[in-house]
Design a protein around this nucleic acid. Structure first.
Length: 179
DNA sequence: CCTCAGTAGTGCC
DNA sequence: GGCACTACTGAGG
């Protein structure tokens, strides 16, 4: 029995409901999903149905509860963050992933707005200088757009590589943050 | 400009 | 346990 080392960490969310809201933002539509513990998904897109499908694929066994966007809810914080990238670190998050993915996402949150890092930088920071592609994989699996700023990770030569929600959005986010 | 090998995590079988 | 994927990178045509 070796089920403890690499099994994905499951958030304490078995039966607890996940609130879901969709609203407009400067990048199109944004879907935010959260529990009492914090945000578990922030997805960008142009189509409500596609966003919901994406969420359901990511949280297959969650009880989703749709709510109207409200100024008191985390989705308002997320939209404010897109408009002005400050205070992302204060948002509580409740993302599920493997230990490795969570360590990558945690490192990403330490990249300040206005600066960028390469995949190799992140790998180095984690003490796994050769796990470069794995870092890219963890970025690609990031469930929390903008809040976990995977858009600040570029290739070593400075080019943009990919973005789960479209390279154009990555470019737009970086342009907005450029100091 | 291009291709290639090295490399490590993940998902599917 | 395989095995085939990568949002990579540095070296070499």
């Amino acid at each position: 029995m070796n089920t403890h080392s690499s099994a994905p960490h499951r958030s304490p969310r078995q039966g607890s409901p996940v609130q879901v809201a969709i609203d407009r933002c400067p990048l199109g539509l944004v879907l935010a999903a959260w529990t009492s513990q914090g945000l578990c998904a922030v997805l960008l897109g142009d189509d409500r149905a596609a966003l919901l499908r994406d969420l359901e694929a990511r949280l297959p066994s969650a009880a989703l509860v749709a709510v109207e966007p409200s100024a008191d809810d985390p989705i308002a914080r997320v939209i404010a963050l897109i408009e002005s990238p400050r205070g992302a670190q204060e948002l509580a998050i409740d993302a599920r992933g493997t230990a490795f993915q969570r360590s990558v996402w945690s490192a990403l949150r330490e990249i300040p707005a206005g600066s960028t890092a390469s995949y190799a930088d992140i790998a180095l920071r984690l003490g796994r200088p050769k796990a470069v592609r794995a870092v890219a994989g963890a970025c690609a699996a990031n469930p929390l757009a903008v809040v976990v700023p995977c858009h600040r990770v570029l290739r070593s030569d400075g080019s943009l590589s990919g973005y789960r929600w479209g390279v154009e959005r990555k470019r737009a986010l970086l342009a907005r943050e450029a100091s």
